Structures are given as C-alpha cells and as structure tokens.
Simulated scan of single mutants.
Amino acid sequence: MILALADGVSFRQTNTGLVMLFNRVSGIMYELNETAAEIAKIVADGATRLDELVDRMCVAFDGDSALIGEDTRRFVSDFIKLGIVTAREGED
C-alpha cells in the first residue's frame, strides 16, 4: 500500500512545535499528537509504502516494534477514513 496526503491536505508545523493537517476542501484542521505528527511528517515528505512507514516509526520511537506497527496501522486507517491520507495499491 502506497500512502500520500490527499489532494487539498497540507502539513503545518508552527514555531511552537504544534503539528497540524489542514484539509482545505472541508475546512477542517486536525491538531496531531506526537505519534500522529511523526506519521504525517513522513507521509507529507512524499508517497510512502506502509511497510517503510512502520519501519521508520520503529526507528523514531522506542518500544515493542509489533505494538508500534499496530499503532501506526491504526493511525493510517483513521487518516484514510478522515480523507486526509490516500492509499493506493502497491507493494507493502
């Protein structure tokens, strides 16, 4: 699965460190916690395979890699349901 920010969605980080995704189509702004912010940062850098994203999250955060993988997949699923990340078929 290849992930990318949806059309009309922009990534913003303020000078105070607050990280947000703004959906210009719906007008909704999402304030992100640390985990969601790291996922959004990676995806905003360019189309990313899900397995690559999980690997990068395991490097960014200490902990059980299986749990980090589950959390990452849950966040990605939520982002897709919200329409702020798109997924297309591809090698995972």
Rank of each mutant, 00 (worst) to 15 (best):
M29K: 08
D71A: 05
T16R: 14
I2P: 00
R56N: 02
M1A: 13
V25I: 10
E89N: 14
L21Y: 03
D7V: 08
D51K: 14
L32W: 02
R74P: 03
V9H: 10
A37D: 10
T86M: 13
E52M: 06
D62E: 06
R73L: 04
F79M: 14
T14G: 15
L5Y: 03
T72N: 11
E38H: 02
V25Y: 12
C58N: 11
A87Q: 15
E91C: 02
V85C: 10
E89P: 09
V25C: 06
F11S: 02
V76I: 09
N23V: 05
A66W: 01
K41S: 02
E31R: 12
E91V: 03
V76F: 11
M29W: 09
G17E: 05
M29C: 06
N15F: 04
C58V: 01
R49L: 04
F61Y: 14
G83S: 11
S77E: 15
M57N: 01
S10E: 14
L82Y: 12
L53G: 01
F22L: 12
V43C: 15
L3S: 01
L3M: 07
I2V: 12
E31A: 14
A47L: 04
T48Y: 12
R56I: 00
V85P: 09
A60R: 14
S65I: 02
S26M: 10
I39W: 08
A40K: 12
I39K: 13
